[in-house]
Amino acid sequence: MKIDLGDLNAFVTVARARGFRDGARLSGASASGLSEAVSRLEAQLGVRLFNRTTRSVVPTEAGERLLDRLGPALSEVETALDVVNGFRDRPMGTLRLNVPVSAVRLALPAIVPPFLAAYPDIRLEIVADDNFVDVLAAGCDAGIRYDERLEQDMIAVPIGPRVQRMAAAAAPAYLDRHGRPGHPRDLLGHACLRGRFLSGAMPAWEFERDGEVVVVEPTGPLLVSLGTAVDLAVDAAIAGTGIIFLFEDWLRPHLDSGVLEPVLEPWWQSFSGPFLYYPGRRLVPAPLRAFIDFIRST
């Protein structure tokens, strides 16, 4: 049985994206083209690979088993073909990165434009995702995360600012009305603007001063999805709705302009910046190697 490699790639793309439209958006192909390729593959194999409804496209048991075996195999094919990149004057190909929204905003703007200028034959795809995922299973070459969320078998390379802080801030008018907290526990009596990950986890607010660490879980009138809706919380803080707790660099323009005022600044906790991470058990594709070399040199 001769199976077209493009049809297999189409199947993996749709299975990982859980849909033809999302698969088309991620791959640059057309949804109709992916559908035709999957139908052709199902016809050749004589088995249904997806259960399709108007709302979802979910792999069947046969589809799941095929994906488990086929995903790593196709990755190895891509890696093998990528070897020829070493014989080119300039690396080419696609580099897919899974990145938290904070890194998209705070780390990548200073890196992406000069990198693409230096490597015009590389196409960079950024998938913004605040959930921790298996980068290979997600169809990505590497990811960016903070050290507490890195797996032990990953290779990690520093990227972006090496020291960051979480900052609390509020509009001066809000603080004039409700008072300025002198200790992190005072936040329990304030309107605080919280965030929650898509997983449902709601991170506590952590402060530190002279070796004393204080963790609080305040309440307030607004809860947003971390990453995707954080700017709404920032706007609400500027409007005087309450106190926000976010990356200092994210809030810095508003702090400098005066529309937000620092809250409990002596208690702001520092932590190490993000890392680019990738599995160490496979050959590094040329576009990823170029990106690693670039961030190490900057």
Rank of each mutant, 00 (worst) to 15 (best):
G139A: 03
C140Y: 07
D141N: 05
A142G: 12
A142V: 07
G143V: 11
G143S: 14
I144Y: 04
I144F: 06
R145E: 10
Y146Q: 04
Y146H: 08
D147E: 15
D147A: 12
D147T: 01
E148L: 00
E148I: 08
R149T: 11
L150R: 03
L150C: 01
E151G: 07
Q152D: 14
M154I: 06
I155Y: 00
I155S: 11
A156H: 05
A156R: 06
A156W: 03
V157F: 08
V157C: 10
V157M: 05
P158G: 09
P158S: 13
I159F: 05
I159A: 01
I159T: 03
I159N: 09
G160T: 07
P161M: 03
P161W: 04
P161H: 09
P161T: 05
R162M: 08
R162F: 01
R162V: 07
V163I: 13
V163K: 14
R165G: 02
R165S: 08
R165M: 07
R165T: 11
M166G: 13
M166Q: 14
A168R: 01
A168P: 02
A168T: 13
A169T: 09
A170E: 12
A170P: 10
A170R: 07
A170Y: 06
A171P: 02
P172Q: 09
P172I: 08
P172N: 12
D176N: 08
D176W: 04
R177F: 00
R177G: 00
H178E: 15
G179A: 02
G179I: 09
R180A: 06
R180M: 06
R180Q: 07
P181H: 06
G182S: 14
G182H: 11
G182V: 15
H183G: 11
H183L: 07
P184E: 03
R185F: 12
L187I: 12
L187G: 11
L188R: 05
L188H: 08
L188N: 09
G189L: 06
H190N: 04
H190P: 00
A191G: 02
A191R: 14
A191T: 02
A191P: 00
A191K: 08
C192D: 03
R194V: 04
R194M: 11
R194S: 09
R194C: 11
R194N: 11
G195T: 07
G195S: 08
R196H: 03
R196V: 14
F197N: 14
F197E: 13
L198F: 06
G200D: 02
G200C: 01
A201G: 05
M202Y: 03
M202I: 12
M202H: 10
M202E: 15
M202C: 14
E206M: 09
E208R: 05
R209F: 00
R209M: 01
D210Y: 03
D210L: 04
